[in-house]
Design a protein around this nucleic acid. Sequence first.
DNA 1: GAGTGGTCTAGACCACGTG
DNA 2: ACGTGGTCTAGACCACTCA
Lengths: 252, 252
Amino acid sequence: MSLHETVRTTLRDRILSGALPVGAALPTTAELSVEFGASRGPVRQALAALATEGLISTGQGRVPTVMRAPFAHAIDDFFSFSAWVTAMGRVPGQRTIELALRRPPASVAAALGVGGDTRAVDLVRVRSIDDEPVMIERSTFVEHVGRLIFDFDPDAGSVFTALLDRGVSLEHGEHTINAVAANDQDAAALDVAVGTPLLRVHRLTRSAAGEVIEVADDRYRPDRASLIVHNSRTRTAPAPSAVRRTTTEGSR
Amino acid sequence: MSLHETVRTTLRDRILSGALPVGAALPTTAELSVEFGASRGPVRQALAALATEGLISTGQGRVPTVMRAPFAHAIDDFFSFSAWVTAMGRVPGQRTIELALRRPPASVAAALGVGGDTRAVDLVRVRSIDDEPVMIERSTFVEHVGRLIFDFDPDAGSVFTALLDRGVSLEHGEHTINAVAANDQDAAALDVAVGTPLLRVHRLTRSAAGEVIEVADDRYRPDRASLIVHNSRTRTAPAPSAVRRTTTEGSR
DNA sequence: GAGTGGTCTAGACCACGTG
DNA sequence: ACGTGGTCTAGACCACTCA
């Protein structure tokens, strides 16, 4: 692990453990440099990361202060339902409704960046926490990645990590969030009435090279799951939070 | 503007203008250093920021590549409805339904971190784009900030920027996102039927010092607005995206 | 005014991807 | 093998906060 990662995870652990309670001041960058045997560069990199996580508050001339404790130390688990649930100490579950290789509708093909006559792999699953259904996930993968799913059991665990293990690059996510009424399939899968408001997340997953790998439509029972987004004003941070708001009706 | 900010905004403008089309390779850090007369430090800081914005894709040994064009150059406008709409070239509007100084319910008082007998300022507004209602916003401010709102017209424009101008520190936002059915007031304000699914964003705004300034409940018509969240896997970036997912039923 | 974080430089080494 | 980005150092200056 690189030096700035060590500093970052160490400090996060101290906040999580209560050694650094909410409101407490962190050591100065100079002190941290001595403690970790590092120069100020890596230390500041670690603090900047914690600031954009929303754990600490920084500012010129001000001593960094603990703002809140992390739910868990997981961060980028946005990508993996299983990792997210596991990090919370709950038990994730999944039941596959459908796994098929077929020609996607034109809109999905366009999102995937493939021609209309190219086949793709559809995967529909119900995801659960402690055996209670929480989300219905409709994914479409580009063919060369989707074919890998036929080689393992999607009910066994995380498709995301299984694909990573097979060398698939899944680096960037673009999530468009809004609300929809449950349709017949949603209602049956999530055990709610038709028309119940659901939290809908439309996901576009890209490789490191920028190629679209997956297009997905996830629908959550809002009484069982929410999304939390933290952000700080740009100000001085090396990297801003990656949040943007948009209208649906073709804003550009 | 600091050097890394100059590099960042310049590159973003080039992507937005099409000078750097999607898929194009950016100049190497060495070349950018020469161009801007900077060392690699600020250049890398700028590239890292663009990567967490989701505009470019980076990686060890790989040349940074343009992934997508920004909707607009606005970034942290998550905080300001007016700034967001304006950045899209639309016309924001607002109509105040209520502005009152009163004792908040216990749950809100707790979120604000004040005692149950302390008064706070409630502000309920309908926000619109091009005269079409898009969102109903129910805010509660701590008293010493909320009192400032009585000094200006909340229908005139952005309360957010007006408060900033008066020296109020609004730095961190924590947004919890889910879906709800429209109640009577929602339905009337947004011109939808009662029970229509709405996108609900519960917002906690904090000062730089970590004090809670505002608690808000924003409800969007999902056919007119969505949220977009970009994130990349932690990997090498100096700062991760600040996104987290959570269950609603008291996960911690 | 003292001390803090924010910024920048110049140089170095390493890990990785591409040709 | 080469060039790339990723990381780190040592030192410097500035802007800001706080006592």
